[in-house]
């Protein structure tokens, strides 16, 4: 049992390592965006948290969401649609091994992204970050990978192999923008700021910002409850697709 789980993780990792063309964009985009918006465009204006610090939380969230959605959603949709998951389902493989391996990959990618951002922010971005805050931020961001892996799973189990990538791009990019992950939430029009309350990445990024002493001042439990509800809804949708797949 344990050996199966470890081997699934090992080979999931080797697959990604041997096909860097698939993994690369997921890692590169948040880092490039952070470099552009937080480091190059940063004008160090005014008081409060600097942009390079603020955007560690928001682009960290953006990167974690991407790694989770694409690591889970796209690979499950592809392996399901192309029949590979069915081959595995005919074996005694515990389904947990399959999912644990994918979660492990999402966490690994997330950690690479967040640590890269922190390194950039600290060395050339002028981000203000103590070690305890950096660790708290990393912890919050990694725990968000669970929610968005569930989101990816919901898409992967309900959308065809060809539909998953376009659909996820259609969700990922606008949802990130509207949640204040690209430009700060307070820079968006007031109507959009209110709408963001209904988007999971907003709550995710608010929790991340809180570890840096920022955020909009809503109590943390509001965001935690929102994330838990979102996770439950995504898992329910994923389970619906899974049942449909298993009992045709």
């Amino acid at each position: 049992m344990l050996r199966t789980h470890l081997l699934e993780i090992k080979y999931e990792f080797l697959k990604a390592l041997r096909t860097p063309q698939y993994a690369f964009p997921t890692l590169l985009f948040p880092i490039l965006f952070y470099l552009f918006f937080a480091v190059v465009m940063n004008r160090h204006e005014g008081s409060g948290m600097g942009m390079a610090t603020y955007m560690l939380a928001t682009y960290g969230a953006f990167g974690v969401i991407g790694a989770s959605l694409f690591g889970f959603g796209v690979t499950v949709a592809l392996e399901r649609g192309q029949g590979w998951l069915h081959v595995k389902r005919t074996t005694p493989m515990p389904l947990s091994a399959y999912f644990v391996a994918k979660i492990a990959m999402a966490l690994l990618f997330s950690a690479i992204i967040v640590i890269s951002l922190m390194t950039l922010g600290f060395t050339i971005g002028g981000a203000q970050l103590t070690l305890p805050r950096a660790l708290a931020l990393l912890g919050v961001l990694l725990s968000g990978a669970i929610t968005f892996s569930a989101f990816g799973l919901a898409v992967g189990y309900n959308v065809s192999a060809n539909g998953a990538v376009p659909l996820l791009n259609l969700i990922y990019l606008p949802m990130s923008f509207l949640s204040g992950l690209w430009v700060p939430i307070w820079a968006l029009p007031r109507g959009l700021q209110r709408f963001a309350f209904f988007l999971p990445p907003f709550h995710f990024s608010q929790l991340a910002l809180k570890t840096l002493g920022g955020g909009r001042g809503m109590p943390a439990y509001v965001h935690v409850i929102a994330m838990v509800i979102a996770t439950a809804v995504f898992l329910a949708i994923a389970y619906r697709g899974y049942r449909h797949d298993e009992v045709q």
């Binding site: 096909t19 192309q82 029949g83 081959v87």
Partner: peptide, 15 residues
């Protein structure tokens, strides 16, 4: 006790 060979469009190629 069962094994299967299915028609599969794609198998993980890097492995």
């Amino acid at each position: 006790r069962t094994g299967a060979m299915l028609q599969v469009a794609r198998v993980p190629e890097p492995l």
